[in-house]
Design a protein around this nucleic acid. Structure first.
Lengths: 201, 201
DNA sequence: CGGCGTTTTGAGAGAGCTCAACATCGGTGG
DNA sequence: CCACCGATGTTGAGCTCTCTCAAAACGCCG
């Protein structure tokens, strides 16, 4: 989940200046549903669970934010948080106060543009990942990922983390991913190199 | 796919004024990868496929936009389109010229805010739908959907389209959805009414 | 070297998918 | 008013594919 190809260059110097870091112990709540919104966050280290709790106390997970992810962007435009944010591991988050951000957005057109562009790219990225999950066959899903993440030459895919991480992003078990890659290589559809995969055919 | 709970109130009167409708025959291309961006679109009627075509001519679907969906938002911040938009059925799209939108955004802070808020809400919605797809069990996935879409009372879910549509949104076959709902009703977890589902327990 | 996490391969079971038949509902036209 | 038609809704049976549990090889770092 933490592998958004969506970079975070929306941080103008002025925005970066208002950033405040905060540490959280595992299980600690950052904010709760109904609380007044104070700003948005970025995960520096650790992992947070965004959950909505229904009347019966059951939780529905909205998102799991990991290192590098931002969350609660919508809090900028809403008076109260609409879910709970709970650290599932000891974590560090960077806080960006709502007022400072909105002020900067009003003063600096570049900052708004950068932030909007970041959101638009994230929407695009999320839509394609959702589309990917509509592909049932493991092989086709892996191919979809590879084709979409090929570099400039259209034939080389750089692997960022471990294959286990990739399996999680693809919504497959790591065993299935290993087997699928092995089969694709055996069939001559891909070539597996150190840290990269080359598309053939 | 077309059931974003994300309303489109980002349309200020000034924005609505620059809207231009265009008709497309099935199979017709609206824009192609590499073309200069002219603006973003909204599907009024029909269905469009956003695809990226790799060097070997294989397509990878990025998104399927249906009535009510907007797409190519990122074109506002990019010089060229990064995928093809092809109508898969006779369609009507509304076109919002990039220049007019960006101009309006500069003049009218309300318009920027509304547009950013819409994007932020869409990011939230997409993230939760992606999280939903991580749930393997059909029953848990359906429950996740119901819990997240319950009305103000937290117990009543209004069904917008057909159950077939819902099955597609959940990434299940309609048969499995029917069976799952029947089981949940038999177990007393839900009550099925006309056009709505009531959560029990 | 020893330990830990990743990578790999094996075998089995379960859940959802597919194909198929049928019921139900809403609209259309005779 | 009723027969017809298409799409939605429903249930059944079998199959495939992925998930799960298990075990072992590999690589990396102290």
């Amino acid at each position: 989940m933490g592998s958004e190809a969506v970079a975070r260059e929306w941080l103008s110097p002025a925005v970066r200046a208002v950033r405040v870091e905060r540490m959280l112990k595992a299980g600690e709540a950052l904010f709760l549903q109904g609380h007044r919104t104070t700003g948005l966050y970025e995960v520096v280290r650790g992992k947070l669970r965004l959950v909505r709790v229904d009347h019966a106390g059951r939780e529905a997970v909205l998102h799991v934010a990991e290192a590098g992810d931002t969350f609660a962007e919508a809090s900028l435009f809403s008076p109260t948080y609409r879910c709970d944010a709970i650290a599932t591991a000891d974590s560090v988050v960077a806080f960006y106060p709502k007022g400072a951000l909105l002020g900067e957005f009003q003063r600096n057109p570049k900052a708004v543009q950068a932030f909007m562009a970041m959101l638009a790219r994230q929407v695009m990225s999320l839509r394609s990942r959702l589309e990917q999950r509509n592909i049932h066959s493991a092989r086709d899903r892996v191919w979809h990922y590879l084709a979409l993440n090929a570099g400039a030459d259209g034939r080389t895919v750089a692997l960022i983390g471990t294959l286990k991480d990739l399996a999680a992003e693809l919504g497959l078990t790591h065993e299935v991913l290993y087997r699928t890659l092995a089969n694709m290589a055996a069939d001559g559809d891909i070539e597996r190199l150190k840290g990269t995969i080359k598309l053939l055919g």
